[in-house]
């Protein structure tokens, strides 16, 4: 195997590890709510350091490959996609960490009905599935699977739009819980953001494999 092939494969393995790591961060947030387990929230917060270190290592590997091997064609597209994907993953992990910090403080006391009103668990479940799909799509070079992320992102967008009305209604009905309600409204935004970032990852995977640029295209155009 040519040296460049070995380097590309090692980079791919590192990127897959990072997707898995971030997926676990998001998945743990859902388990925190499910089990009201504050320890898991602390794990997510502590895990942020590992995600950041992974991003820096991947950046360095990409830099080395570009400098030493002058990658072209598929190799070049993969390196370019990896730089963007690792950045998106780091931002997803940031959002997960913000959520974990909130949950660490409030999960033991928060009324579960409020969480249901905002569909927080459903959003977390969707985000976890999206990240898992991206892991598989990259591993198997499956652009059909990568494209599935666009529909799921629409689901998150719909919940986000609905949350404005939900927040408004809840604030009227439970003014004493205004702080929590506003925090939950922000968390919906964070989770919608995770969806956007995962959608970006799907676009980069398609770019890497098919050399097709889906950025800034309408959702219907991205599915073909």
């Amino acid at each position: 195997m040519a040296q460049v092939e070995l380097e590309i494969q090692a980079l791919k393995d590192n990127l897959l590890d990072m997707i898995e790591l971030v997926e676990n961060q998001v998945s743990k947030c859902r388990k925190v709510i499910e089990k009201k387990d504050v320890r898991l929230a602390k794990e997510v917060i502590a895990g942020e350091t590992k995600v950041n270190a992974q991003e820096l290592a991947i950046d360095k590997d990409c830099e080395n490959i570009i400098a030493l091997y002058n990658p072209v064609a598929g190799d070049l597209r993969f390196v370019l996609a990896t730089i963007k994907i690792s950045n998106d993953l780091e931002r997803i992990a940031d959002n997960a960490c913000s959520l974990a910090k909130f949950l660490k403080k409030y999960v033991a006391h928060i009324d579960h009905k409020l969480l249901d009103q905002f569909d927080i668990e459903k959003m977390l479940q969707t985000c976890t599935v999206m990240l898992n799909d991206m892991h598989e799509a990259l591993k198997k070079e499956d652009t059909k699977l990568a494209r599935k992320v666009f529909d799921k992102d629409q689901t998150l967008n719909a919940i986000n739009r609905k949350s404005v009305k939900s927040a408004s209604t809840l604030l009227k009905e439970h003014p004493e819980d205004h702080k929590i309600i506003l925090r939950l409204f922000t968390i919906v935004r964070n989770l919608e953001r995770i969806g956007d970032l995962t959608k970006n990852i799907g676009e980069e995977i398609v770019f890497h494999i098919e050399a097709q640029v889906l950025k800034h295209h309408k959702p219907e155009q991205s599915k073909s």
């Binding site: 040519a2 460049v4 990658p71 064609a73 598929g74 070049l76 050399a211």
Partner: peptide, 14 residues
């Protein structure tokens, strides 16, 4: 060099 149409070309230039 960014998107060769032929697999042989890709294998050679990479």
């Amino acid at each position: 060099f960014t998107n060769p149409k032929n697999k042989q070309t890709e294998n050679y230039i990479t």
